[in-house]
Design a protein around this nucleic acid. Sequence first.
DNA 1: GGTTTTTACGGACAGCGTAATTATT
DNA 2: AATAATTACGCTGTCCGTAAAAACC
Lengths: 303, 303
Amino acid sequence: MTNELDIFCAVAKHGSMSRAAAELHLSQPAVSQRLRALEEQYGLQLFRRTNRGVELTPAGETLVRYAQRILQLERSLQAEMASLRAAEPKQVVIGATSAIGGYALPCTVYLFQQKYPDARIQLQIGKRCDVIQRLEDGLVDLALVEGPLVTALPDDWQVSVISEEELVLITPPTGPLAGKEAYTADDLTRLPLIIREPGSGTRMAVEEGWQAAGRDLRDLNIALELTGVDAIKTSVASGHGVALVSRWCVRAEARMGHLRIAPLTDIAFTSRWTLIVPKQGMKGAMERALLRTLRSPAERGFC
Amino acid sequence: MTNELDIFCAVAKHGSMSRAAAELHLSQPAVSQRLRALEEQYGLQLFRRTNRGVELTPAGETLVRYAQRILQLERSLQAEMASLRAAEPKQVVIGATSAIGGYALPCTVYLFQQKYPDARIQLQIGKRCDVIQRLEDGLVDLALVEGPLVTALPDDWQVSVISEEELVLITPPTGPLAGKEAYTADDLTRLPLIIREPGSGTRMAVEEGWQAAGRDLRDLNIALELTGVDAIKTSVASGHGVALVSRWCVRAEARMGHLRIAPLTDIAFTSRWTLIVPKQGMKGAMERALLRTLRSPAERGFC
DNA sequence: GGTTTTTACGGACAGCGTAATTATT
DNA sequence: AATAATTACGCTGTCCGTAAAAACC
């Protein structure tokens, strides 16, 4: 959440709630509301509302001076704490499967590194079963995998679902397979489906969603089995078939027009993203901060 | 909500979460939780947990220095804003009926004055109809009355129910009327009931609750009609009868043993407390702060 | 066993976004 | 009409309290 003094200073700087809201990536009403709350808290009007924005009252100008000093102090504090963290650098190894580790996580790790530049975060991407194996062997500190857990782990591991991601149907942007506006489950029995190898989380999610709709797995028209998301994307883009993948994996291609994300009308596939952490480990403040980031939809900022 | 740096400093000062929690009027787990959040935010351990409390780590000691400067700055800011408020003193006149104005509101007004010492708040207590009359005449800025609104006001008044208060049965602490542990609706048809004058909010609430239980008003054994809560309390304490009053009005007497609050098993009476404000008025920051205080159960602190 | 902190869980409120409304030129 | 701010409303996450558990003498 953005600091109220930050909001106040931004509005004072721009002389406009709308512009301040844009700078802070907030909605304009949110800024208006926080500002009003601040005025109520002090019992003083801080801005005069004019037809083309706002301007500071004397009370507002007083607050600006204090706010700037306080914010400056907080920035120095942040810097000093960062240097203290740097004194005892921590290494954390994250194991993840390809859809998560290759697409969603890099942004999260980047953002986290921005905040904690001294943290050494290593991202190991591998097959689902390998990731879990490495976790059990203590070679990675935590794991993020797709799909449900097949084997129950001993209970010194804490397992939590951090996200339910929708699988989307991707088709070539042009050609015979790009004909329809929207697709149904029946279409999936006819279209050549390119699918991940058995054992992968995405494969599990597809099969689970298909059976949940009361269908038989043999009705899927599997044209090709490929290992890894990238191979599938390339193959679909070349017009070899359609596929079901996590939305994150194809955002870039969809925007560029290399692939088309087609709506599914009467069936939906979801993939659960699961975080696995050893109950004993991850006790330090930095480790906890990382967990918090991964668990909080707002902070992890998958991109 | 208490500032996180305040919490941190209190814990640092006492070397104990429990003692800090007591000082801040918070639960001990709440302090623990906020402290952990602070540690996660900075990615550093701030306290070493020992068996008899906590002690600062080097990072914690750094934070103490910054926190004290920031808190000091905030205190100066508060002081300066208070002096700015004092430059343009505001007078607000509150009209209220006796149960609200005489018992619940004084604490609220006191707390508000502590926070805004320059606010001149005047509390006018009167009969329900008089209060509303004075509001319409503009002689009071806002009104707090008990019970529902009989006459619909024109819609440039904003009416909101701020609290549903339970009416409790009070009996003399000793004597023939103090016999039973708990009372029923049937008992109320036999006990001598001392009741407020018609038109008062409490009277309305009693009659409404009685009829809502499917009873006839004539079955109430009204022994005496008195004007004002105090007269009723005196009369009940003297053993002349029992009465139904707002809990706030008799907290002191119940604690002292002058009156007994007796449970009602099969009937309940509630009195709605209504806040009436002119939609146009109360636009200033101070006025809004007062309204916020009156509307927020946490802040108004009826006592 | 006693003291202190942590974990777990449910409820209340704050802060935000979307959408609709108001005010001012 | 157009621009800027406010109000209304539903949702989500934070913060807090109670209760139970765990750590550390």
